[in-house]
């Protein structure tokens, strides 16, 4: 069953153009010129119940605009959206009871209140009876390890603790879909891992569908089974993580420590990435040459140590971004 259904969605923004200097400012008063920016162009996709989906793209690709249309913050110019069979455009309030949102860059909590008071406030916003909110807080306190700081004002929390509370606050009303817009922005690796665990627990325990945007490849790799890549307002890839890796991982990185120097300059299917005499790093295009052939060229007897790895996902994704640019 599709939880999110998007059909031919578009959004344009009108931006006033201004020539430089005072003269330009005066001119723009009497003769304003506008530029239309197509932030999202005719995109369509569906998200199934219980999925953790990564919605990624470079800055200005249209990710946030799309997420804002899905949550009812922005009005689309054309197209249809159904989230849990609700149209965010016409039934914003009804939808709000069913979804949760966390914007990593925007804070929703009252900073002078403790997480506990904040959770109670959010409970009231969603019209949840106080006894149920208390029960929910108890449950989350244990599940997400909030005990240590649940009674400390939010302004005194670390960024990681704060983001954790932001996510928990958005779960008080047990949303069926959670929209996370860069939830791990600015966090250290340990805290990022904590947040990812939290997201996994939510998905597993509460069967929450998760719609995630992030620039952090680790988030995407560790959490999502499906990726939608958006660039210049258009969807350029909508595939499973497995397929993405399978199709784009036709290159292997071979790093070898050699006894003697080897010359691979004119070999077809091999690109030399680094050649420091006895230390060699090459990229093997397995559509042209198998890894074993490449190793044969190096001469196995000549190898002291070898490491074969995949192209990092980060490189794959930036290549997709770049291809689109071309």
């Amino acid at each position: 069953m599709s939880i999110i259904k998007v059909e031919k969605l578009s959004k344009t923004f009108k931006v006033k153009l201004k020539e430089k200097g005072l003269k330009g400012s005066l001119k723009s008063i009497f003769k304003p010129r506008y530029k239309t920016i197509n932030a999202v162009k005719n995109i369509s996709f569906e998200v199934e119940k219980g999925e953790i989906i990564a919605f990624i793209g470079p800055n200005g690709a249209g990710k946030s605009t799309t997420i804002k249309m899905l949550t009812g913050i922005l009005y689309p110019n054309s197209g249809n959206i159904k989230v849990l069979d609700i149209d965010p455009k016409t039934e914003r309030k009804k939808l709000a009871y069913q979804i949760g949102t966390v914007f990593g860059q925007k804070e929703q909590l009252w900073t002078h209140l403790t997480p506990y008071d904040n959770f109670k406030f959010f409970g009231a916003i969603y019209d949840i009876p106080e006894s149920r909110v208390e029960k929910k807080i108890e449950e989350f306190k244990e599940l997400f390890e909030l005990e240590e700081f649940i009674n400390t004002p939010v302004r005194n929390l670390s960024l990681g603790q704060r983001i954790r509370c932001e996510i928990v606050a958005s779960l008080i009303h047990e949303p069926k879909v959670l929209f996370l817009d860069e939830p791990t922005i600015g966090l250290d690796p340990v805290v990022k891992e904590n947040i990812r665990t939290l997201i996994k627990i939510m998905n597993k325990e509460y069967k929450t569908t998760i719609f995630l945007t992030s620039h952090d490849i680790g988030d995407i790799e560790k959490l999502c089974k499906r990726v939608i890549i958006i660039n210049n307002g258009k969807i350029v890839l909508d595939d499973s993580m497995e397929n993405l890796k399978y199709h784009y991982l036709n290159k292997k990185i071979v790093e070898a420590k050699m006894k003697e120097k080897v010359n691979l300059d004119d070999e077809d299917g091999i690109t030399i990435l680094k050649d420091k005499g006895y230390n060699l790093k090459i990229e093997v295009d397995i559509t042209k040459k198998s890894v074993s052939d490449a190793i044969k060229l190096l001469n196995p007897d000549n190898i002291i140590d070898i490491n074969i790895s995949n192209t990092p996902l980060e490189d794959i994704i930036s290549n997709i971004y770049k291809e689109e640019k071309k």
Binding site: Y75, Q105, E107
Partner: peptide, 14 residues
Amino acid sequence: LKRYSSSNLMVARI
């Protein structure tokens, strides 16, 4: 509100 265009400024509720 239908014309609201949001923004990506960093905002905190303080």
